[in-house]
Design a protein around this nucleic acid. Sequence first.
DNA 1: TTGAAAGCGGTACCAC
DNA 2: GTGGTACCGCTTTCAA
Lengths: 342, 342
Amino acid sequence: MQSDFAGLPRLEDVAREAGVSASTASRVLNGNRPVADGYRQRVLAAARLLGYTANLAAQATARGRYPAVGLVVGDISDQFFARVASGVIHESSKRGLVVNIVSTDGDAGRELEVIRELRRQRPQSLVLVRKRDSTPAANAGLVVELQSFEREGGRVVVVGESSRPMSAIRPPDFDGGKELARALTKLGYRSFAAVTSADPVRSSDDRIDGFRAGLSAAGIALADRDVYSAHSSLPGGMQAAAQYLASGRTVELIFAIEDMMALGVLYGLERAGISVPKDIAVAGYGGRRMETVDLHGLDLTTVRAPLEEMGAAAVSMTVENDEPAVIGLQPEVILRASTPPR
Amino acid sequence: MQSDFAGLPRLEDVAREAGVSASTASRVLNGNRPVADGYRQRVLAAARLLGYTANLAAQATARGRYPAVGLVVGDISDQFFARVASGVIHESSKRGLVVNIVSTDGDAGRELEVIRELRRQRPQSLVLVRKRDSTPAANAGLVVELQSFEREGGRVVVVGESSRPMSAIRPPDFDGGKELARALTKLGYRSFAAVTSADPVRSSDDRIDGFRAGLSAAGIALADRDVYSAHSSLPGGMQAAAQYLASGRTVELIFAIEDMMALGVLYGLERAGISVPKDIAVAGYGGRRMETVDLHGLDLTTVRAPLEEMGAAAVSMTVENDEPAVIGLQPEVILRASTPPR
DNA sequence: TTGAAAGCGGTACCAC
DNA sequence: GTGGTACCGCTTTCAA
């Protein structure tokens, strides 16, 4: 073989350099068992001198476990997946775990396939990130695969949607919608419209449901005819704004379940001569870092979805062996200029 | 140790089940050397029956190389990194390589640190993705580290900025700007303004320079006073639009070096009562999938940066052992409604 | 405390 | 073709 890690120092090289046995060198480097201080120093010096780093794969075969988390995302260019992945990567790094990432390419049917791919590496845990639950059909083989993984000592955590009896971290969409409603009613708003995604994603519904619940608590009803739906994107938001305008109804505030849609709504309204927030207020959801450049009106009120935290929590769950559970995190309402007090 | 891959079938289990030696089983499963067809079938059957998948780490220690690519990104929630990563992941998957991902957290100074982290896994190659070249200071240790990696048979490809004598894949920003200018002049535009990023990123400059070069070819000059700069974001674009309006100058088309900025420009203009594309045209750059919902005017002309392709090309470069080289890919000008023929 | 030796799950050379 | 065996780099008993 040609490129056999050629040149990289092995544990034995360190041991020889330090004049001790490989066992001792190993003990020093892994710091578990006691080693005479003189030897300890020499081993450490030798390791530093040679620039030694343990071969993770060899360690893994010897130890019987690979300190890795397998990360399955749908599409890493999508903000949702990217932000969760970011959290997974950071938390893993903190905990000395490496991250092996695979993508289903947006095709949920490939989940099983990529998980098998991932398992070749014998990761300690699997973090599946999804926007929607897998279809019952795809689910069949998947559940078998995951259970066998857990039976072999692996841990699985699903971030996002999951109906399976499996540890999961759900985005606090309902609560986020609810708290937003509460904050807005507290600001004095009394009549609302909402814009949701035409795509059946659970998050959207939850946000709307939560929003509605929050309004109810203040004695305000959100009529179905005041809920518009469109593609979850900036253009979609413009379309929704057009629908709203065409309806002839007027409300004090429009809540869009996604920031880009909210921007689209904003844009659609303004180009129709309706000023935000003077004539109407707008709120979004997502909380992507929308640089708060001081621009009249573009300071969008939003709810920050704790996606990075969810990714981090997923990793934590897999290492601390808590009971399987479904946990949620706290959303954060961010009030800005697009919804001034009334 | 508890979770020692417990329960997972080993090669030996497959061999026993098939009634052959481990060597033979290995040969069948790796398909290199000849094996009698009878045995072959039995081994394959046994493997299928037991659900056997080779332990990648063990294979790696035995073979002396790990079929993995180490991917270093600055911030995976950033579209640029995410799209490149997407390409890396797909291409790797195609080629049977696993992807180990780490992030510098946006702190270029951490690059060396995370690369060391990555090298514990003995990946065959390293793909570094960056928006800007590393600082000379950080560069010092980095170059040593990377050269030692290459000396040991690893391959390194930088995607994005790199001044080092190292294989790199540069985004075709200059060409993209140039081709855009050519396409626009061909449509009949004659006077232009541009909006660039206040942040010193090479891509921005290249796009502007290319744009300028393209205009020159048509005998048109882009004056410095017609180049505005702002934060590369939607609000930044709005600011730039405000600057443009305040300048009192009028041009036929405004080119912003980033799509979100272009949208901000669009928005800023329209809210000032200037209609796009009726009164003025706008073009962007980036080509993120901007869903082409049929909305008057929001169909933004742009240049598609081939980021996924760059990621894929990086992986290809590391496996096909071409000479180290700096290669570029083709940008794609996408003319849409925001720049109608004049 | 320390080192020798036996693994970990595989691969690949060797002789039959 | 096939199986025995040494070995990959590291960990972890086990005796000394």
